[in-house]
Amino acid sequence: MSIDRREFLKIAGASVIAGLGCLSAFEILLPGQFEASQVLRNPKALVGKRWGMVIDMKKLNEETMKKCVDICHRIHNVPDIKNLKEEIKWIWTETFEHAFPGQESEYMSEEIKEMPFLVLCNQCDNPPCVRVCPTKATFKREDGIVMMDMHRCIGCRFCMAACPFGARSFNWRDPRPFIKEENMEYPTRMKGVVEKCTFCYERLAVGLKPACVEVSNGALIFGDLADPESEIRRVLREHYTIRRKSELGTNPSLYYII
Protein backbone atom coordinates (compact mmCIF):
# COMPACT_ATOMS: atom_id res chain seq x y z
CA MET A 1 0.00 0.00 0.00
CA SER A 2 1.33 3.40 -0.80
CA ILE A 3 0.29 6.64 0.81
CA ASP A 4 0.82 10.13 -0.48
CA ARG A 5 2.14 13.04 1.51
CA ARG A 6 -1.33 14.36 2.29
CA GLU A 7 -2.49 11.03 3.74
CA PHE A 8 0.69 10.71 5.75
CA LEU A 9 0.30 14.15 7.30
CA LYS A 10 -3.32 13.43 8.15
CA ILE A 11 -2.47 10.15 9.90
CA ALA A 12 0.50 11.69 11.71
CA GLY A 13 -1.61 14.62 12.93
CA ALA A 14 -4.42 12.39 14.13
CA SER A 15 -1.96 10.14 15.98
CA VAL A 16 -0.39 13.07 17.81
CA ILE A 17 -3.77 14.37 18.92
CA ALA A 18 -4.95 10.91 20.00
CA GLY A 19 -1.69 10.32 21.88
CA LEU A 20 -1.85 13.60 23.76
CA GLY A 21 -5.52 13.02 24.54
CA CYS A 22 -4.85 9.57 26.01
CA LEU A 23 -1.97 10.91 28.07
CA SER A 24 -4.05 13.63 29.69
CA ALA A 25 -6.96 11.22 30.17
CA PHE A 26 -4.60 8.94 32.09
CA GLU A 27 -3.46 11.78 34.29
CA ILE A 28 -7.02 12.71 35.13
CA LEU A 29 -8.22 9.16 35.72
CA LEU A 30 -5.24 7.98 37.76
CA PRO A 31 -4.92 10.32 40.73
CA GLY A 32 -1.53 10.67 42.39
CA GLN A 33 -0.53 9.11 45.69
CA PHE A 34 -1.26 12.35 47.50
CA GLU A 35 -4.95 11.78 47.32
CA ALA A 36 -4.52 9.43 50.23
CA SER A 37 -2.30 11.69 52.34
CA GLN A 38 -3.78 13.00 55.57
CA VAL A 39 -4.56 16.63 56.19
CA LEU A 40 -6.23 18.24 59.17
CA ARG A 41 -7.71 21.51 60.26
CA ASN A 42 -6.02 23.19 63.18
CA PRO A 43 -8.18 22.34 66.23
CA LYS A 44 -7.68 25.88 67.53
CA ALA A 45 -9.13 27.44 64.34
CA LEU A 46 -12.15 29.70 64.69
CA VAL A 47 -15.08 28.05 62.96
CA GLY A 48 -18.15 29.86 61.72
CA LYS A 49 -20.87 29.61 59.10
CA ARG A 50 -20.86 33.21 57.95
CA TRP A 51 -18.26 35.57 59.29
CA GLY A 52 -19.33 39.19 59.47
CA MET A 53 -18.31 42.49 61.01
CA VAL A 54 -20.02 45.45 62.62
CA ILE A 55 -18.15 48.73 62.41
CA ASP A 56 -19.24 51.05 65.22
CA MET A 57 -18.43 54.52 63.91
CA LYS A 58 -19.29 56.06 67.31
CA LYS A 59 -16.30 54.32 68.85
CA LEU A 60 -13.92 54.96 65.97
CA ASN A 61 -11.68 57.95 65.71
CA GLU A 62 -9.11 58.77 63.06
CA GLU A 63 -6.26 57.48 65.13
CA THR A 64 -7.85 54.05 65.63
CA MET A 65 -8.76 53.85 61.97
CA LYS A 66 -5.19 54.55 61.02
CA LYS A 67 -4.08 51.80 63.37
CA CYS A 68 -6.46 49.34 61.69
CA VAL A 69 -5.20 50.26 58.24
CA ASP A 70 -1.54 50.19 59.24
CA ILE A 71 -1.61 46.82 60.99
CA CYS A 72 -3.48 45.19 58.10
CA HIS A 73 -1.19 46.55 55.42
CA ARG A 74 1.90 45.74 57.44
CA ILE A 75 1.17 42.12 58.29
CA HIS A 76 -0.13 41.35 54.81
CA ASN A 77 2.77 42.94 52.99
CA VAL A 78 0.48 45.36 51.16
CA PRO A 79 2.73 47.66 49.13
CA ASP A 80 2.59 51.38 49.74
CA ILE A 81 2.26 52.75 46.22
CA LYS A 82 1.76 56.50 46.20
CA ASN A 83 0.70 56.68 42.54
CA LEU A 84 -3.13 56.64 42.75
CA LYS A 85 -3.34 54.83 39.42
CA GLU A 86 -1.59 51.74 40.78
CA GLU A 87 -2.63 52.03 44.41
CA ILE A 88 -3.22 48.81 46.37
CA LYS A 89 -5.35 48.80 49.50
CA TRP A 90 -7.20 46.23 51.57
CA ILE A 91 -8.74 48.55 54.15
CA TRP A 92 -8.88 52.31 54.01
CA THR A 93 -11.06 55.33 54.78
CA GLU A 94 -13.60 57.03 52.56
CA THR A 95 -15.85 59.97 53.43
CA PHE A 96 -19.53 59.22 54.02
CA GLU A 97 -20.74 60.71 50.72
CA HIS A 98 -18.32 58.52 48.75
CA ALA A 99 -18.65 55.35 50.82
CA PHE A 100 -22.46 55.58 50.69
CA PRO A 101 -23.22 57.38 47.41
CA GLY A 102 -26.89 58.25 47.14
CA GLN A 103 -27.35 58.31 50.92
CA GLU A 104 -26.13 61.87 51.33
CA SER A 105 -28.49 64.83 51.17
CA GLU A 106 -27.93 68.48 50.49
CA TYR A 107 -28.92 69.51 54.02
CA MET A 108 -26.76 67.00 55.77
CA SER A 109 -24.11 68.51 58.03
CA GLU A 110 -20.68 68.85 56.48
CA GLU A 111 -19.39 66.93 59.47
CA ILE A 112 -21.20 63.75 58.49
CA LYS A 113 -20.63 64.21 54.76
CA GLU A 114 -16.91 64.49 55.33
CA MET A 115 -16.76 61.90 58.08
CA PRO A 116 -14.25 59.18 57.24
CA PHE A 117 -15.61 55.63 57.19
CA LEU A 118 -13.53 52.49 57.36
CA VAL A 119 -14.11 50.48 54.18
CA LEU A 120 -12.87 47.04 53.13
CA CYS A 121 -14.13 44.02 51.22
CA ASN A 122 -17.75 43.43 52.22
CA GLN A 123 -17.38 39.63 52.13
CA CYS A 124 -20.74 39.49 50.34
CA ASP A 125 -22.98 36.50 50.80
CA ASN A 126 -23.84 36.68 47.09
CA PRO A 127 -20.55 37.92 45.68
CA PRO A 128 -20.53 39.07 42.03
CA CYS A 129 -16.73 38.75 41.90
CA VAL A 130 -16.99 35.02 42.58
CA ARG A 131 -19.74 34.65 40.00
CA VAL A 132 -17.62 36.11 37.21
CA CYS A 133 -14.19 34.61 37.94
CA PRO A 134 -13.31 32.28 35.03
CA THR A 135 -10.88 30.12 37.03
CA LYS A 136 -12.42 29.99 40.54
CA ALA A 137 -9.37 31.94 41.72
CA THR A 138 -11.75 33.93 43.86
CA PHE A 139 -14.26 31.75 45.66
CA LYS A 140 -16.50 31.68 48.70
CA ARG A 141 -15.38 29.49 51.56
CA GLU A 142 -17.75 27.47 53.73
CA ASP A 143 -17.45 30.09 56.44
CA GLY A 144 -18.57 32.86 54.07
CA ILE A 145 -15.17 34.43 53.45
CA VAL A 146 -14.65 35.55 49.86
CA MET A 147 -11.17 34.19 49.32
CA MET A 148 -8.42 34.80 46.78
CA ASP A 149 -6.20 32.01 45.46
CA MET A 150 -3.19 33.94 44.21
CA HIS A 151 -1.72 30.83 42.63
CA ARG A 152 -4.61 30.57 40.23
CA CYS A 153 -5.47 34.17 39.34
CA ILE A 154 -4.81 34.93 35.66
CA GLY A 155 -5.26 38.68 36.08
CA CYS A 156 -8.27 39.19 33.80
CA ARG A 157 -9.72 41.77 36.22
CA PHE A 158 -13.32 40.70 35.55
CA CYS A 159 -13.77 40.66 39.34
CA MET A 160 -12.73 44.31 39.56
CA ALA A 161 -15.38 45.24 37.03
CA ALA A 162 -17.94 43.16 38.93
CA CYS A 163 -17.27 44.47 42.44
CA PRO A 164 -19.63 47.39 43.19
CA PHE A 165 -17.56 48.39 46.22
CA GLY A 166 -14.19 49.07 44.63
CA ALA A 167 -12.67 46.65 47.11
CA ARG A 168 -10.22 45.03 44.73
CA SER A 169 -6.74 46.11 43.71
CA PHE A 170 -4.57 44.87 40.87
CA ASN A 171 -0.80 44.50 40.88
CA TRP A 172 0.06 46.65 37.89
CA ARG A 173 3.75 45.88 38.48
CA ASP A 174 5.96 43.96 40.91
CA PRO A 175 4.86 45.11 44.39
CA ARG A 176 8.05 44.09 46.23
CA PRO A 177 9.99 47.35 45.86
CA PHE A 178 7.06 49.20 47.48
CA ILE A 179 6.99 47.12 50.65
CA LYS A 180 8.95 48.89 53.34
CA GLU A 181 9.23 46.15 55.87
CA GLU A 182 8.40 42.59 54.96
CA ASN A 183 6.44 40.32 57.28
CA MET A 184 8.40 37.11 56.88
CA GLU A 185 5.43 34.98 57.97
CA TYR A 186 3.16 36.06 55.11
CA PRO A 187 3.75 36.05 51.35
CA THR A 188 3.71 39.11 49.12
CA ARG A 189 1.96 39.12 45.77
CA MET A 190 3.44 39.09 42.28
CA LYS A 191 2.67 41.37 39.36
CA GLY A 192 -0.50 40.63 37.43
CA VAL A 193 -2.81 39.30 40.14
CA VAL A 194 -5.79 40.85 41.94
CA GLU A 195 -5.86 41.13 45.72
CA LYS A 196 -8.14 42.26 48.53
CA CYS A 197 -9.00 41.76 52.20
CA THR A 198 -9.50 38.10 53.14
CA PHE A 199 -10.84 38.67 56.69
CA CYS A 200 -7.44 37.45 57.95
CA TYR A 201 -8.16 33.83 57.05
CA GLU A 202 -4.60 32.99 58.11
CA ARG A 203 -5.29 34.31 61.60
CA LEU A 204 -8.69 32.64 61.93
CA ALA A 205 -6.97 29.35 61.08
CA VAL A 206 -4.90 29.59 64.23
CA GLY A 207 -7.65 30.90 66.47
CA LEU A 208 -7.06 34.66 66.19
CA LYS A 209 -9.53 37.36 65.17
CA PRO A 210 -8.73 39.65 62.24
CA ALA A 211 -5.90 42.08 62.94
CA CYS A 212 -8.01 45.22 62.49
CA VAL A 213 -10.53 43.95 65.04
CA GLU A 214 -7.78 43.37 67.55
CA VAL A 215 -6.44 46.94 67.42
CA SER A 216 -9.84 48.67 67.18
CA ASN A 217 -10.55 49.04 70.93
CA GLY A 218 -13.86 47.27 70.50
CA ALA A 219 -15.12 49.44 67.66
CA LEU A 220 -15.02 46.52 65.23
CA ILE A 221 -17.09 43.54 66.24
CA PHE A 222 -16.30 40.32 64.44
CA GLY A 223 -18.39 37.17 64.66
CA ASP A 224 -20.59 34.52 63.11
CA LEU A 225 -23.72 36.06 61.57
CA ALA A 226 -25.28 32.61 61.31
CA ASP A 227 -25.15 32.09 65.08
CA PRO A 228 -28.09 33.87 66.81
CA GLU A 229 -26.28 33.66 70.15
CA SER A 230 -23.15 35.44 68.93
CA GLU A 231 -22.11 38.88 70.11
CA ILE A 232 -22.35 40.32 66.61
CA ARG A 233 -25.99 39.24 66.37
CA ARG A 234 -26.71 40.83 69.74
CA VAL A 235 -25.15 44.09 68.55
CA LEU A 236 -27.19 43.94 65.34
CA ARG A 237 -30.37 43.41 67.35
CA GLU A 238 -29.65 46.37 69.61
CA HIS A 239 -28.55 48.94 67.05
CA TYR A 240 -29.77 50.42 63.80
CA THR A 241 -27.14 49.58 61.19
CA ILE A 242 -26.63 50.34 57.51
CA ARG A 243 -24.78 48.51 54.76
CA ARG A 244 -23.14 49.81 51.61
CA LYS A 245 -25.29 49.51 48.47
CA SER A 246 -27.50 46.81 49.94
CA GLU A 247 -30.02 47.46 47.13
CA LEU A 248 -27.71 45.60 44.72
CA GLY A 249 -28.48 42.32 46.43
CA THR A 250 -24.91 41.24 47.05
CA ASN A 251 -25.81 40.95 50.74
CA PRO A 252 -22.70 42.43 52.37
CA SER A 253 -21.51 40.98 55.68
CA LEU A 254 -20.27 44.36 56.90
CA TYR A 255 -22.61 46.57 58.97
CA TYR A 256 -22.10 50.15 60.09
CA ILE A 257 -23.42 51.82 63.24
CA ILE A 258 -23.49 55.59 62.79
Binding site: G32, F34, S37, V39, L40, A45, R141, M147, D149, Y201
Partner: peptide
Amino acid sequence: TEHMVMLDNWRDSVVREGNRIYI
Protein backbone atom coordinates in the same frame (compact mmCIF):
# COMPACT_ATOMS: atom_id res chain seq x y z
CA THR B 1 11.09 13.24 43.48
CA GLU B 2 7.75 14.45 44.86
CA HIS B 3 8.33 17.78 46.62
CA MET B 4 6.78 19.75 43.80
CA VAL B 5 3.63 17.64 43.79
CA MET B 6 3.47 17.89 47.54
CA LEU B 7 3.77 21.69 47.53
CA ASP B 8 1.13 21.88 44.83
CA ASN B 9 -1.24 19.82 46.98
CA TRP B 10 -0.39 21.83 50.06
CA ARG B 11 -1.30 25.14 48.52
CA ASP B 12 -4.70 23.87 47.43
CA SER B 13 -5.30 22.32 50.81
CA VAL B 14 -4.36 25.47 52.72
CA VAL B 15 -5.80 28.16 50.48
CA ARG B 16 -8.87 26.42 49.14
CA GLU B 17 -9.90 23.95 51.85
CA GLY B 18 -8.50 25.68 54.91
CA ASN B 19 -6.72 22.52 56.10
CA ARG B 20 -3.32 23.55 57.31
CA ILE B 21 -1.94 20.52 59.10
CA TYR B 22 -0.15 17.73 57.29
CA ILE B 23 0.20 14.31 58.88
